[in-house]
Write a protein that binds this DNA or RNA. Structure first.
Lengths: 222, 222, 222, 222
DNA sequence: GATGAATGAGGCTTCATTCAT
DNA sequence: GATGAATGAAGCCTCATTCAT
């Protein structure tokens, strides 16, 4: 007969969460492959073996981390567009995404960088949360097309990919620009620093109107 | 005094190239970390140790591979825009890039996926070839802004990143869609198949004019 | 809160000691360079990786082995001369050293032979325990010189080296003579067997009075 | 039909000698195991494969080097005692040996250090030249014993070992003291510098008369 | 449940040696 | 004879995972 008190249960979930947070930090710091399970355990303040009470493997740890964070992202995005009129949802979606990157850079780092570190994710692992993400974005676009507000030439799933590519690349550039450069001063790929929240307006501008310089008659009708 | 016949020389450089090609295939198939040096050697038809006559380490092999391919990409892009009038260079650049992805899917796979497999690349390794790539794209945009053809609101380096994000994501989706899905049938992230060459027009359309449905007065003035 | 029973603690230190003993045997049998870590592990009854829980590297294993044994030797020698009147300490020191070689031939083999197997030891590794050894011997000599009992012509540190050379060479010859000769029967360097404990008297005789045949008037003054 | 001109033959032996000299330098610098065959080839100014035209293996290279140098040492010692009256031969032998160390430190380094680096030499390889060396020294001692000049208590082969131990240890200490210390300043085993030629008198003094302070009546009888 | 010492499979790399030129 | 690119066997070490306590 085993009794689980509330505190025991919360302590349990607390430990799982501590491990996930530790993994997020270690993965962000070293990358998935270079990260050591023992390092994650130490960061979480648990024994190495304890991790295997909550996760099947190091892979499972990354997958679980990704799923949890991506689910949170999807929920936040859903909430962000919930009260917004349809025609403004695309703008709201993009702004909310980049705001999240700004507010949770550690999570963003895992989502943008580490997600790509493993063929397991790019190839073998079928990723329902990311599919949800794309579906949500594609749905916004489809609705816009149906309302006649958006150009219907581009298939929505391709357009969604393009938009995701834009904001993901911005997130990546921003995350990398935050890092103290190892080879500081060397002119290289290290992205220039910029305000990612402000960049949301640029993305929206590009997505809505493109880069072509607005002719006088385009936006200001008489 | 040593005499190298032409065949000797070409055989030597041929061996280096064979190793690079083998590495490209193996990296694309398994990912950088899961790839085994011995596997690359076998694929190249050389002994394991031979690889170390041409490359310092497994890391160096990936870096060399990336640098060579990226240099080739940059040269191809430079050639693609050389004879094109300035106002059409952005379109030419994008179309050429996606055409390259289509023609060299193996290289594209390494550039889009494996490049991201190692923290060495995302964080530690300063990447001059990618910097060149961004500079070329940014230069096209800056010229367009100066001619007044492109909106100058967005900093060119940010716009270049956004455009790269779009086409890189498309390349990734296309490469992954080509793969025989391991979990075939499962509805997931596996991208839908599409024609990446044709997608170039969509990208150009989005970049130039955005997604906003063209109102009668926008492009067709009365 | 972790409780270590006495048996747990001893089992742990026991494992370290078992590895050292195994290394001593394997190094003595094959030499440091030809010795395989996996062989040491098997001899110690542990997994290969276990060795690296207790020692940083194969080199560290040899260094640790040397330091432990040499420390033990120094302690034994210190004890051997502790209760001895100053004028007899040199004799006691030499006899104790060769007695140790006799009693611990495995350790002697590592100290005399394997110690010299690695440039790390002869050149790079500064060896505090051996320095202690020489200091102890030099101290005995210096005290003898101050009491006027020993000739002060030779610097004590040189004399200590010479005495060490003698007993070390005897130890080496004795250790090698014990081995079942691979090329048995061949007249070669394989030293003749002799009683190393008895040889102590020869060393003391040489060190005290030299080889010159004692003239009647030398030791027996009128 | 192959004709070898004199110059060809000398060129050949010259190449062999160059390889031996290169090996001596490289072995002295890095030790036998850490020395690389390719390094020796470069130092000798020949191709890697050329070494195998003159020597069977890296081991054979060390053995040949040792045998040649040790033969030279034996010849030099034989010459050094040839014209010397029997009672002075031990002194002449010791002085000549240490003088050789002084004049050919590279060879001495190989003989004293590298010789001991390989179990091949200490254990497996039966060493006729070293046997000759000991025989020569033992012969001098035996003759002295027969003339009644030397104490016959100690077996000559043991006494020869002891004397060799002394001078070999001095040679080692002197060779190591010559090296620019890596950890300069650290008080350790790095031997103090001393004049090895002058040390010959100390050795002779110890061997002949021991360390016991000479009583007035010992050496100067009325 | 929690621990962390122990495991052991397996990779990257080195380098003595070979052999086609 | 000389070359040096190529070979490939084999070792040290790492680290995800297990399991006795």
């Amino acid at each position: 007969m085993t009794v689980h008190s509330a505190s025991e249960r919360s302590e349990r979930s607390d430990k799982r969460e501590r491990i996930l947070l530790a993994a997020e930090r270690i993965f962000a710091r070293h990358g998935f492959f270079a990260a050591r399970v023992s390092q994650i355990a130490k960061e979480a303040g648990v024994a190495d073996g304890t991790i295997y009470l909550y996760f099947k493997s190091k892979d499972d740890l990354l997958i679980s981390l990704f799923e949890q964070r991506m689910t949170q992202v999807n929920e936040a995005l859903k909430a962000a567009i919930a009260q917004v009129p349809p025609k403004d949802q695309l703008r709201a979606f993009i702004k909310a995404y980049l705001q999240l990157v700004h507010d949770e850079p550690g999570a963003a780092e895992v989502l943008t960088i580490e997600l790509r570190q493993s063929s397991k994710f790019m190839k073998e692992y079928d990723n329902p949360q990311f599919a949800d993400f794309l579906r949500m974005l594609g749905g916004i676009l489809a609705a816009g097309q149906e309302r006649g507000e958006l150009d219907a030439t581009i298939p929505t799933h391709v357009a969604a990919r393009m938009i995701f590519g834009m904001i993901d690349e911005l997130a990546l550039a921003w995350v990398l620009a935050r890092q103290p450069s190892i080879s500081a001063g060397t002119p290289g790929t290290r992205p220039k620093k910029f305000d990612i929240v402000r960049a949301a307006d640029w993305v929206v501008g590009l997505v809505m109107n493109g880069l072509t310089a607005s002719s006088p008659g385009k936006e200001q009708s008489p």
